[in-house]
């Protein structure tokens, strides 16, 4: 071995002017399969584009005409509002149910379990129609303080409008799925963390707020982001209740004009645009939290773990 810092290679100064072997790029082999796959990909793209352009039944001019029509935009806004409302109420209730699910009191656990069984075991569409028709079951709702005369009768038919039924149905259903996500997050927290907190004498609530939830976040947040995207599309179900969200808005138009396909395309375009827009922050969140997760191990990548917990 020589003591020079540069590695000496026999082929370093080849007289024929060949490149230094140490700096030559490495060329990888491409299998035949990859060329075949590319060929298929190109063919499919050409085929789809051709039919989209040449088949006049798509009526792209009609699509363009209605894409930003006021009634469609109103529907889109309502869809967005429904998504955020259902995700907000659903997530909050979901966390509550997840906490009840791990309660030390057995009856509480049973009630939470029954909730999950019911809402996960029946279709959302059926639930939505059910809430819409709840007045048939309980025509009058008395809100009052038990054992006193203070009470107020409410007409359930008026209380549960189509939109209320939509938010109620989507939220209650979302809560059940969110509860499962949160429970999974809780389960991902190392048992030793809880024992360390116990050994310090932390109360149940402190443990939950300061130890369990912050450490469950890396699991919970990306999964919730996925639910968000799912919920955006799920809101189309409430069109059956006559709520004028995006799908119902286009249906109202084509019921009049019979331009069914182009109007469904309008809805598809908006759903696609919105889910792609939502996917971007989702992928950022996912990346960020997957790094956090790695750091919880022994990954020596310095970065802001302050995202979770009460870092100063």
């Amino acid at each position: 071995m020589t003591s020079t810092t540069e590695p000496t290679r026999t082929d370093r100064h080849k007289p024929d002017g060949h490149e230094d072997a140490a700096t030559k790029p490495r060329v990888h082999r491409r299998g035949t399969l990859e060329y075949v796959a590319w060929a298929v990909c190109v063919l499919v793209t050409i085929g789809v584009t051709r039919t989209l352009v040449t088949n006049e039944n798509y009526q792209w001019d009609v699509v363009a005409q209605y894409l930003t029509a006021p009634s469609i935009i109103r529907g889109l806004v309502l869809t967005v509002v429904l998504t955020f409302a259902a995700m907000f109420f659903g997530s909050v209730l979901g966390v509550v149910i997840a906490v009840l699910r791990v309660s030390p009191l057995r009856p509480v656990r049973i009630l939470a379990g029954a909730y999950l069984t019911f809402f996960r075991g029946t279709p959302v569409l059926v639930q939505l129609i059910f809430w819409f028709n709840i007045a048939a079951l309980y025509p009058e709702l008395a809100i009052g303080i038990p054992f006193t005369d203070i009470s107020q009768d409410i007409d359930v038919n008026r209380l549960i409008s189509a939109t209320t039924a939509a938010v109620l149905g989507l939220s209650l259903n979302q809560a059940a799925y969110q509860a499962e996500i949160v429970r999974g997050g809780f389960a991902s927290v190392d048992k030793g963390q809880i024992e360390a907190a116990d050994a310090l004498g932390m109360s149940r609530l402190t443990k939950l707020r300061r130890i369990t939830i912050p450490q469950a976040m890396p699991t919970i947040v990306p999964a919730t982001g996925n639910q968000f995207i799912g919920m955006f599309k799920e809101t189309s179900l409430v069109s059956v209740l006559g709520v004028a969200e995006l799908l119902q808005s286009v249906q109202l138009v084509y019921a009049r004009t019979y331009q069914t396909i182009p109007l469904l395309l309008v809805a598809c375009v908006w759903y696609l645009v919105m889910t792609v827009l939502l996917s971007y922050p989702q992928s950022l969140i996912e990346k960020r939290f997957s790094r956090t997760r790695a750091r919880v191990g022994n990954d020596p990548v310095p970065s802001q773990i302050g995202l979770i917990g009460d870092a100063k």
């Binding site: 190392d190 030793g192 963390q193 024992e195 360390a196 912050p214 450490q215 979770i308 917990g309 870092a311």
Partner: peptide, 8 residues
């Protein structure tokens, strides 16, 4: 050890 990883 069981240090809380979300805290300094």
């Amino acid at each position: 050890f069981n240090l809380f990883p979300n805290m300094t």
